[in-house]
């Protein structure tokens, strides 16, 4: 599966937040662990709402977690 144009630093951020697991993050944002895994691997672009939820968990702005690389 091709990677999406939206990349992110979630894996890095989780590591620096007490090594938060994908399941912990999924529970906090109301998603499944598989979705968090797909987002981290840039195989799935989250909705704006989910992106905001994820950014809020790390007390960051959306653009600090996600970046868009136009081809």
């Amino acid at each position: 599966m091709a990677k999406t144009a939206v990349s992110n630093t979630i894996r890095h951020l989780r590591f620096h937040h007490n090594e938060m697991t994908q399941q912990d993050l999924a529970d906090r944002v109301g998603a499944t662990r598989q979705t968090i895994n797909a987002i981290e691997a840039a195989k799935y672009s989250p909705s704006l709402e989910l992106a905001f939820r994820i950014a809020r968990v790390f007390d960051l702005k959306v653009e600090e977690v996600f970046s868009f690389q136009e081809e």
Partner: peptide, 9 residues
């Protein structure tokens, strides 16, 4: 008690 369905599903 866990999320079993989300926007990706």
């Amino acid at each position: 008690p866990m999320v079993d369905r989300d926007e990706r599903d």
